[in-house]
Amino acid sequence: MRHGSIPGSSGHVRPLTLLGDPVLHRPCADVTDFGPSLTRLVEDMFATMYAAQGVGLAANQIGEALRVFVYDCEDDDDVRHVGYVVNPRLVEADGVVIRGPEGCLSLPGLEAGTPRFDHARVEGQDLHGDPVVLHGTGWFARCLQHECDHLAGTVYTDRVTGWRRSRVLRQAAKAPWGKTSR
């Protein structure tokens, strides 16, 4: 999904919100203002995601508690998907559950085997409030689920269990940026 020239981005890189910051652990608010400030937010999100070498970024990862995420991610067929979605809702996650390596820009340098479905469907809006539907498989499905989780106040470590969870939370606590709240 491409919406105008936003991925070329004239946005500004913003500081990332790290694990432990309360904004990551609360559901985000729906976007109601589809004006220029939303366009600037999406531009800044793309600039920040690319600067951090990520494949997705939710607005709360830069401290904005709004339901918006951006992505630049490949699917099972090596097709690159670049875009954004406003007020996304994960309406379908199904298929095979795969425990794969997952990281997060809010936990820099860490990853853990996280279970995700290999297919996802997200419905939302574009910058004008028009409907958008995304379908993802493989890595892109994982990305869609991960970013929707962020907007619901869930970090991927909340989905990890057992020794994997203990290990990644220990690593986060020891990281230079580490301040875990869960």
Results as ranks from 00 to 15, higher is better:
residue 26 R to E: 14
residue 119 H to D: 00
residue 178 G to Y: 00
residue 119 H to C: 03
residue 16 L to R: 11
residue 79 V to M: 02
residue 49 M to V: 13
residue 100 G to F: 00
residue 38 L to V: 00
residue 117 F to S: 02
residue 107 L to S: 09
residue 39 T to D: 08
residue 83 G to P: 14
residue 81 H to T: 07
residue 100 G to V: 06
residue 89 R to C: 03
residue 176 P to M: 00
residue 21 D to Q: 03
residue 169 L to I: 11
residue 129 G to N: 05
residue 148 C to M: 06
residue 146 H to M: 12
residue 66 L to P: 10
residue 17 T to Y: 03
residue 89 R to T: 14
residue 7 P to V: 04
residue 107 L to Q: 07
residue 79 V to A: 13
residue 116 R to V: 01
residue 101 P to A: 12
residue 27 P to D: 01
residue 152 A to S: 14
residue 26 R to Y: 05
residue 152 A to E: 15
residue 130 D to L: 08
residue 37 S to Y: 00
residue 149 D to N: 15
residue 53 Q to M: 10
residue 124 G to S: 07
residue 174 K to W: 05
residue 113 G to T: 00
residue 82 V to G: 14
residue 18 L to Y: 09
residue 172 A to L: 10
residue 42 V to E: 07
residue 97 V to C: 01
residue 12 H to V: 11
residue 118 D to F: 02
residue 90 L to F: 06
residue 128 H to V: 00
residue 24 L to A: 07
residue 67 R to Q: 14
residue 68 V to F: 04
residue 132 V to M: 11
residue 25 H to N: 12
residue 172 A to W: 07
residue 105 L to F: 09
residue 52 A to R: 02
residue 27 P to W: 03
residue 6 I to W: 10
residue 109 G to K: 09
residue 151 L to P: 14
residue 3 H to K: 11
residue 109 G to T: 10
residue 172 A to V: 10
residue 119 H to I: 00
residue 43 E to H: 11
residue 138 G to R: 02
residue 160 V to A: 05
residue 53 Q to A: 13
residue 50 Y to A: 06
residue 120 A to Q: 03
residue 36 P to E: 09
residue 112 A to P: 07
residue 49 M to C: 03
residue 122 V to M: 02
residue 30 D to Q: 11
residue 162 G to R: 02
residue 151 L to E: 11
residue 120 A to W: 01
residue 2 R to S: 10
residue 89 R to L: 02
residue 79 V to P: 04
residue 66 L to W: 06
residue 38 L to T: 01
residue 60 N to S: 11
residue 130 D to R: 15
residue 66 L to D: 06
residue 162 G to A: 05
residue 86 V to Q: 05
residue 30 D to F: 02
residue 158 D to G: 13
residue 121 R to F: 01
residue 48 T to Y: 00
residue 9 S to C: 09
residue 137 T to D: 08
residue 103 G to E: 10
residue 92 E to M: 04
residue 45 M to T: 12
residue 114 T to W: 02
residue 72 D to P: 04
residue 64 E to V: 15
residue 37 S to V: 08
residue 56 G to Y: 04
residue 177 W to A: 06
residue 80 R to K: 14
residue 130 D to N: 15
residue 146 H to L: 13
residue 95 G to C: 06
residue 165 R to D: 08
residue 24 L to D: 04
residue 10 S to A: 04
residue 6 I to E: 01
residue 61 Q to R: 12
residue 129 G to A: 06
residue 58 A to D: 11
residue 68 V to W: 05
residue 3 H to Q: 15
